[in-house]
Computed example of a mutant assay.
Amino acid sequence: MNEAFQPSRNLFGPIIVHSQSDWIISHPEDPQDFEQFFTDRFRKAPCPKKHVIYLQSIGSLGNTRVIREEYIKWLKGYCEAFFYGLTVRFLDPVPVSATKCSFRVNEHTQNLQIHAGHILAFLKKKKPKDAFCIVGITMIDLYPRDSWNFVFGQASLTDGVGIFSFARYDKDFSSSRYEGRVKKPTRTSSSDYTIFDNYYNPEITSILLWRSCKTLTHEIGHIFGLRHCQWLACLMQGSNHLEESDRRPLSLCPICLRKLQSAIGFSIIERYKALLRWIDDQSNDIIGATPSSDHVNLPKPVEAFKDWREWIIKCIAVLEE
């Protein structure tokens, strides 16, 4: 906390408003300090009986099984380092049809979208007994209600469920047009979901992995009870668009970090070291996983994490002084 407010230090910076469309301007919220977080009676914390973060992929996450397996491995490893001390497990992937969700074609992008609220209801029914939370990930765009354009993700603190999409993080998102193929939001027979069978899967680049890790940890942070940050530049800031989302750091500000630490109980320096190992380790296999016959160990694309790595090293140095 002292580091954040010493003028001579530069580990933590202020929130900078770039336009009136920024989240903090267009969605006014009361700030949440540590005391408000800690005394929130609706907040849930992990315990020995509920200590696992489950990840559920919905639809395909890659063009091949090899890419999908590696991408899942990278996301799982990052999540375990970020929420240091908890167990992270991936459930078997499910097709969109399994969720029975409504879907539509967005009138602005002409791209497919699935209903976030219906996905949350599906995940709530699937939540294992030892789960602290279960979160869905998908490459398909999301909408929370008919009147909204889209949402990057949505989470329920009380139910311990969340869903987030990486669709808008791909450079070719806008080229996938489905105009005229879905007339209105629908939720009928399973045969209607064949429209998702050949849905475009983006290339897993370093930028896509960087954005995915950022969204993954932001939405799970909400399930821990962290509200949108209004203190300093922080992962938990809200975002209205991709440019604003990209401006957010991967790091938590000291206030939000203290909130997460109180919920999990990790050593801050050991957590930073775990994140550093994730960036540097190219053999981050899923424990207990059975590789497929065509499995290869693809190099983890961490070029986009270079600044994050240097920042972590500075934090470790300060903590070891």
Rank of each mutant, 00 (worst) to 15 (best):
G85M: 04
E320G: 04
H118N: 13
F5P: 04
K129Y: 08
F122W: 03
H115A: 01
K44V: 14
R41G: 10
L55F: 13
T109Q: 15
S21K: 10
N149L: 08
K273A: 15
T99D: 11
H51G: 03
Y169C: 09
F164W: 00
G225K: 01
W23V: 04
L216N: 01
R181K: 12
W278K: 08
G62A: 01
S293C: 12
G77E: 08
R41L: 10
R187G: 08
T64Q: 06
P254M: 14
D159L: 03
K273S: 08
L86G: 05
S251I: 07
I279K: 06
T205D: 00
S176G: 04
S174T: 04
Q154N: 07
N240Y: 05
K127Q: 15
K300D: 01
V17N: 14
V318N: 13
L257A: 15
W210G: 02
R145Q: 09
S156Y: 00
E70K: 11
K273E: 12
D170P: 03
E179P: 05
M139G: 03
Q282M: 12
F34V: 03
P291E: 05
D40V: 06
K314M: 10
P144N: 04
L123D: 10
P202A: 05
C234N: 12
I207N: 06
N149P: 10
K129M: 09
A98N: 08
L75K: 04
K49I: 08
L319D: 11
C229N: 04
T215Y: 06
P254E: 06
D159N: 02
G225V: 03
S175I: 08
F82W: 01
P185F: 01
R41V: 06
I204R: 02
D307I: 14
V135C: 12
A4N: 11
N106M: 04
S174K: 13
L75G: 07
L232A: 06
Q113I: 11
K49W: 06
F152V: 02
K124M: 10
L120H: 03
I279E: 08
R227S: 13
D33G: 05
F164K: 00
N2W: 09
E303I: 13
T188V: 12
F42E: 13
H295V: 04
R104D: 06
T64M: 12
R247Y: 15
L120I: 04
C213F: 07
K76R: 13
L157Q: 07
L232S: 12
V296W: 11
Y272D: 15
C234T: 12
I163H: 00
I119L: 14
P14W: 04
H108K: 11
V105S: 13
I223N: 07
Q36F: 06
F224L: 05
E243N: 12
W148M: 13
W74F: 07
Y193Q: 05
W210E: 04
W311R: 05
K314P: 07
E321S: 14
V105R: 03
Q20H: 09
P254T: 15
I287V: 15
R177H: 08
A289M: 15
S292D: 10
R168K: 02
G153S: 04
E35L: 10
P202C: 04
H118C: 13
P291V: 11
T87G: 02
I137M: 05
W74R: 01
D280Q: 08
